[in-house]
């Protein structure tokens, strides 16, 4: 797909923490360069002004969907965007929002009071449940450079190169101490898609799986390892569900 810079780009935010937007802004050294090639039509974290362009080149979508109103907005943006890219765990899998369990009506009332009972919401859904998604940038949040690389690749008519591999590979490359092997820690590195440079295990924190599951992941064996390490079935389930790695 050919684009002539500056590309008309909008950032849409649904149910999320805005951390993905912040991640793009954390590329301080590249923002001036970005401004040359991008015409920004919407970016909630920077401005409450809503762009009303009739057509967009690229829509970056952050967050999960939780209400009919959000679905309408998403559909409208899909109709006028040449490319629609899902950004971050919430948009890709529902993210931590999707952990919510139990009776929805009761939860709404207990958190928001009587007003909560009136709101029309549904359990958090990834955006691909509603629209065609042309590209995905995983992570909670994604790595700052990934957002720039995606925009740069789109400008060149492509999509960033990408290796399908688990976090363990980057963790070994960085010569980190293996938390799974040495501490029997519940690290999700073996089944989680890499690209984060094994950030968490490198800091001694077991991988939480925020970048989603690699294809053909061996969950059975990881489950066995965690049980052997003394985790309960419920603890393992919670761990896997945090970012939608449970089956």
């Amino acid at each position: 797909m050919k684009f002539v810079p500056p590309i008309k780009l909008a950032w849409l935010r649904f149910t999320s923490c805005s951390g993905c937007q912040l991640t793009l802004l954390n590329n301080e050294d590249s923002l001036a360069e970005l401004a040359h090639v991008v015409e920004l039509h919407n970016f909630p974290l920077l401005s409450s002004a809503c762009g009303n362009a009739e057509a967009l080149d690229v829509a970056l979508v952050e967050g999960s969907l939780t209400s009919p109103g959000e679905v309408e907005r998403l559909l409208a943006i899909r109709r006028k965007s040449r490319l629609l890219v899902a950004v971050g765990a919430c948009a890709l899998t529902g993210g931590v929002n999707a952990m919510v369990k139990g009776e929805r009506h009761k939860a709404m009332v207990s958190i928001y009071g009587k007003a909560g009972a009136e709101w029309d919401t549904f359990p958090p859904q990834p955006i691909h449940h509603f629209v065609k998604v042309d590209g995905q940038i995983p992570g909670c949040p994604p790595e700052p450079h990934e957002l720039l690389q995606a925009i740069a690749a789109i400008l060149h008519g492509g999509w960033p190169s990408h290796q399908v591999m688990p976090v363990c590979m980057e963790c070994r490359i960085n010569e980190n101490r293996c938390l799974l092997e040495e501490d029997c820690a519940p690290c999700l590195g073996p089944i989680t898609q890499a690209g984060c440079d094994a950030l968490c295990p490198g800091l001694g924190v077991p991988c939480e799986g925020c970048r989603g599951v690699v294809p053909e992941a061996n969950r059975d064996e990881l489950y066995r390892l965690f049980i052997t390490a003394g985790l309960s079935e419920q603890e393992i389930r919670h761990r896997l569900e945090r970012f939608g790695a449970a089956l």
Binding site: M165, R172, P190, E216, N218, D220
Partner: peptide, 9 residues
């Protein structure tokens, strides 16, 4: 193969 995690280590 049933044990291999495909971690690539």
């Amino acid at each position: 193969a049933s044990h291999c995690l495909s971690c690539g280590a």
